[in-house]
Design a protein around this nucleic acid. Structure first.
Lengths: 189, 189
DNA sequence: ACTACTACTAGTATCAGGTATTAAATTATG
DNA sequence: CATAATTTAATACCTGATACTAGTAGTAGT
């Protein structure tokens, strides 16, 4: 007799094995557990674990959807309103990605990133870079909160090479972040 | 006669169609271009576009690898050295993700994120949050450069509720970023 | 001891979405 | 017109399954 596990335990281990390596075939699982391929398939049925190809398809679709929703990389948050060289508003929702796992408080650099990218976006120039910033995290923002950043261009230097942008971020009507950015404006020749 | 395109143009459009929707089958493409399925397959061969299942598998594997390598979200950059309440060093390589597509210059908030997360990590407390910061982007960092951030704890307040951390980031021996962070230390009860 | 039930195995037909190969038909071009 | 490029057709085969039928082994109930 080949060593075999009771059904319940095998099914637990099967779930774990597929979770650990979603790219495993029924054939490999059959050898792993010393049972027939039909048993593996019955187990998957009972546990409602889809077949390999379905699993890969789901993963592919998920990552595809993520990529679609990731012009996040261009500007952090959704720009709601933008008046070049004047002001701008963006909205950014705090998700699991952005928080410390223990406290569910948003990491500062995400709040900063929203403000910084808005400050850059509001500048009407092909190339705009942050030169310096003076920032304050007024209160912590937690998972699920929607952060509204408002940017105001306070001044533009004589040579138009620098702009002062103030950004205030709110959750509801509470200020959570305040920053003064100096943005370089670089002319294209 | 059904309307058909010249080969070159069809192949361009085929590439675009698959790029636009990687989940399309040869069968659907065949109907889209009014050619036989063999023609579609020849085209894919010539363009070395893998079959649907391979495409899905690749996407799934990519997203799986990404998830594996994404404690990036916990601390931005690799912490090389860490002496709690004293100093820390982290290394961060600028990739396509981090740059403006046109100029290949790193977005400020990524440089900031490295410095900020290191400043938080260096604090020997369960919960540490950025209170404020005063930062300067000394020179721009470009695609491919490796950014070394060095954090020094300059002072800890009497009640140990606040710490001053200075972070200097370098590419080679050039300073690219300089920041003074005030970090809140919150005791667990 | 006979029955019923669970767990497992075996085998076959079928599917999607292809590859690989050979060959024929069509169209274009010098 | 001949030849080359392009397209289509046909067939065998592959992987990783589903769906279904049927059979076996062991165990518990009566």
């Amino acid at each position: 007799m080949i060593e075999r596990l009771p059904k319940k335990i095998r099914q637990q281990q099967l779930t774990a094995a597929i979770e650990h390596n979603p790219f495993i075939t029924d054939d490999e699982l059959m050898r792993m557990f010393n049972v027939s391929i039909q048993t593996i398939r019955l187990d998957r049925m009972e546990l409602s674990i889809p077949e390999l190809r379905e699993r890969m398809k789901l993963m592919a679709e998920q990552s595809y959807d993520q990529v679609r929703s990731l012009p996040l990389h261009e500007v952090i948050g959704d720009v709601i309103d933008l008046q070049l060289d004047k002001s701008g508003i963006s909205l950014f929702e705090i998700t699991e990605h952005h928080v410390f796992s223990r406290t569910k408080i948003a990491r500062g650099h995400h709040i900063f990133a929203q403000a910084n990218s808005l400050a850059v976006a509001v500048i009407n120039e092909e190339v705009a870079l942050t030169a310096s910033a003076d920032i304050r995290f007024v209160r912590s923002v937690v998972l699920g909160e929607k952060c509204v950043a408002k940017a105001y261009v306070r001044s533009i230097s004589k040579g138009q090479t620098k702009a002062q942008v103030e950004v205030l971020s709110y959750v509801g009507d509470e200020i959570v972040f305040q920053g003064n950015f100096v943005i370089f404006r670089i002319h294209k020749q």
